[in-house]
């Protein structure tokens, strides 16, 4: 009986089946106010971190989210999880609208949605042992009480490739790769369906990076997880994702199946981004043509009118400076926001 409990206890039954839409995001906006004034704080502007996104995530798949720093990919992940309450838009998770949930109702949903963070050093409490870190979500959600909890923790440690004998140790006793495994274990403990992985391998050395990527893949298969995988490394995202979305300055530029996006990019920003990443093959790499974008990303405080990419776009025309391009499905399952496609 003990082994039964440590595996799956069916705390709830998800109505969403493999291959059906688990997450449906429509018109998501996340603005952060900028205030000024010494005594009376007045709102003077908005940072438009995420501006009008729409996408769906299917149960069991990995949706990759790429873009440069400040493009709003992490904010998107947090707004989906309701860690930030969105300014506008809808986030539908398995048939329930999350943006209007509050208090206990929201907390119940939080168990089904978890997050893995980038920095394995600052995202773990140094005063808590591994056992306490992994046990905390179980305590919060009142799962696996008494001796079952210790068993569950041992089971999780094994699942993420850590020696269960390390349960009493503290984060500082582990290497970066091992700490990331603890963070993954914490996210897995309460049996979530959906995990936002925010740059989970960026802080790790390449050989350790490969271990964690493989682990995430194995866990997805084992527990039927759905991932929103946020990263700036395009090769890693291609490797792990079924579909990939490209963001720039708070907007989604393009979304397609991985191979389609990497082999047949349509948006000029996606093309430039892909050409800027060198391939690990000296002969091929030196023959590749690259599109070097000039200038920097504009401030999200004052995004340019029209298409936000127009200031750096090599093929921009007048229309791009005047009208915001709409999000269209140009080929089946291939979405793009560009007037010139």
């Amino acid at each position: 009986m003990a082994t039964m409990q440590t595996q799956s206890k069916n705390i709830y039954t998800s109505t969403v089946k493999h291959g059906e839409t688990l997450l449906d995001v429509q018109g998501l906006k996340m603005y952060f106010p900028v205030t000024a004034g010494t005594f009376i704080q007045k709102k003077v502007a908005d940072v438009r971190a995420v501006d009008d996104l729409q996408f769906k995530v299917t149960k069991g798949e990995t949706l990759g989210l790429v873009g440069e720093s400040g493009c709003g990919k992490s904010t998107t992940g947090r707004a989906v999880l309701q860690l930030y309450r969105p300014t506008a838009g809808s986030v539908n998770f398995g048939g329930t609208e999350l943006t209007t949930l509050k208090g206990d109702e929201l907390r119940r949903f939080r168990r089904r949605m978890q997050m893995i963070f980038q920095d394995p050093f600052s995202s773990l409490n140094p005063r808590m042992s591994v056992e306490q870190i992994i046990g905390e979500p179980l305590a919060i959600h009142g799962l696996y009480k008494g001796p079952e909890r210790a068993e569950r923790i041992q089971y999780i440690l094994q699942a993420v490739g850590l020696n269960p004998a390390f349960a009493r140790r503290f984060p500082h006793e582990f290497s970066g790769g091992q700490r990331q495994r603890i963070g993954i274990g914490r996210a897995l403990a309460a049996e979530p369906e959906f995990i936002v992985c925010d740059e989970p391998v960026s802080a790790l050395d390449v050989s350790i990076q490969a271990q964690v990527i493989n682990l995430l893949g194995d866990l997805q298969e084992q527990f039927g997880l759905t991932y929103l995988f946020i990263a700036h490394d395009l090769a890693v995202v291609r490797h792990i994702s079924d579909r990939v979305a490209v963001m720039y300055l708070g907007k989604m530029m393009e979304l397609a199946e991985s191979n389609e996006l990497y082999q047949n990019p349509l948006h000029p920003y996606t093309k430039a981004l892909l050409s800027a990443v060198p391939i690990t093959d000296p002969e091929l790499e030196r023959q590749r043509e690259r599109i070097i974008l000039t200038g920097d990303v504009p401030s999200p405080l004052r995004p340019p009118p029209g298409c936000v990419f127009n200031t750096r776009c090599p093929i921009a025309v007048d229309e791009c400076r005047e009208r915001i391009p709409e999000w269209r499905e140009v080929e089946p399952n291939h979405f793009v926001a560009c007037h010139r496609v």
Partner: peptide, 19 residues
Amino acid sequence: LMASVPRLDATERIRLTTI
């Protein structure tokens, strides 16, 4: 090291080799 880095131009998903 070479086998543990995913390639941008890989069309098939093969398991990464780890050290």
